[in-house]
Design a protein around this nucleic acid. Structure first.
Lengths: 149, 149
DNA sequence: TCAATATTGATGCAATTGCATTCAGATGCT
DNA sequence: AGCATCTGAATGCAATTGCATCAATATTGA
C-alpha cells in the first residue's frame, strides 16, 4: 500500500469541493421550487416513492432508513409526520413485535402524482437541461462508484 | 422550443436521484469523520478557507455568501459563531457603513491547518479512492456545467 | 435455559435552520 | 434635496436536526 493513500490528488480535491457546493446548491434550488408550489420537502417524496415501490408488503422503518440513508431518528420523525399527514399508515409487524410495517395510503399516492410534474420540471430546469444525455450517463456511472459499499 | 423541455429523460432522472442520495451521504460521512476527530462542521472550514484565500483585504459577509451559496441568515450566524470562537475578526467597513469586513485570525489559520489532514484523509477514504483520476476530472467537468450561472 | 448483547424504534433536550421581519444605510429618481 | 426603493446584516420564533439515551423485543452463545 502506498504511503499516501490518504492524500487525494489536486484534481480530486477540486472535484470534491465542487461536488459539495454544486450538489447542495442544486438540491436547495429544486427543493425551493417544490416549496414555492406549496409542496412538502423532498424527503417526503423520497419516502413515499420507496413505499410505493415496496408495494403491498410495505416497508419496516429500518428498511426505509437503509434506502434513504437517513439517521434512525430522522426516519422515526419523518414517519411520524407522514402518518399525521395521512400519507402512510403504520401497522404492528406480525413477525417482530418491536417493529411496524409502513404502507403508503391513497393520499400518499395522490401527493406523489401531484408533486411529480413540479419535481420533474425542476429537475429539468436545474439539472438535466444543463447536461447532455451522455454526461448524465457518465455522472450516474461515477456516482454509482461512490455509493456506500 | 420542444414542448417537453420540462421532461428530463429516464437516465437523467436516475442521475439526479443518485446525485441527491450519494452526495448527501458522502458529505455526511466526511462530516462525521471531522466531528469524530473533535472538529467543527465543514461550513466552518469552507468559510475560513474562503477568508484565507481572500487575503489581507478580507471579505464582506455578502461576498462570503455568494461564494458559499448559503442563505443570508446562515452566513450571519456562521460569522457570529466563528467570531465568538475567535477564528475570524469583524471590522466595520470603511466604504459602507452598513457593512463589515471579515478577516481570518491566526486561530482560524491554525484550525485550517489542523483540520486539513483529517479532512484530506476523509476525502480520500470516501471519495477519491473510489475513483480514477480520469473519473475525478470527468466529474469535476460535469459539475462545473451544473453550477449556478 | 437464561444472561449478555444486539436491534428496532421513540424521545427529551440542545443546537441549527428556515422564515419573516426589522433596522440602518446606500442608491436612484424627479 | 427629498422620497421611494434597494441592499447588507441581524434576529425572534417555529420547525427541524443531532445527540444521547431509553424501553421493548430479538438473538446469541455459554
Amino acid at each position: 500500500m502506498p504511503d499516501d493513500v490518504d492524500k487525494p490528488s489536486e484534481d480530486a480535491v477540486v472535484a470534491w469541493a465542487r461536488l459539495v457546493r454544486v450538489s447542495q446548491d442544486l438540491i436547495a434550488q429544486v427543493e425551493g421550487e417544490l416549496k414555492a408550489a406549496g409542496f412538502p420537502p423532498l424527503s417526503w417524496y423520497d419516502a413515499l416513492l420507496e413505499l410505493r415501490r415496496a408495494g403491498a408488503g410495505g416497508l419496516r422503518p429500518f428498511q426505509l432508513q437503509s434506502e434513504m440513508l437517513l439517521a434512525q431518528y430522522n426516519i422515526s420523525r419523518l414517519v411520524h409526520r407522514l402518518t399525521v399527514a395521512g400519507h402512510i399508515e403504520r401497522r404492528p409487524s406480525d413477525d417482530d413485535r418491536r417493529g411496524q410495517v409502513l404502507r403508503i395510503t391513497e393520499s400518499g399516492r395522490r401527493l406523489l402524482r401531484e408533486m411529480w410534474p413540479v419535481y420533474r420540471a425542476a429537475i429539468a430546469k436545474h439539472f438535466s437541461q444543463k447536461l447532455s444525455e451522455r454526461e448524465a450517463l457518465q455522472l450516474a456511472r461515477i456516482l454509482a462508484k461512490l455509493r456506500k459499499d
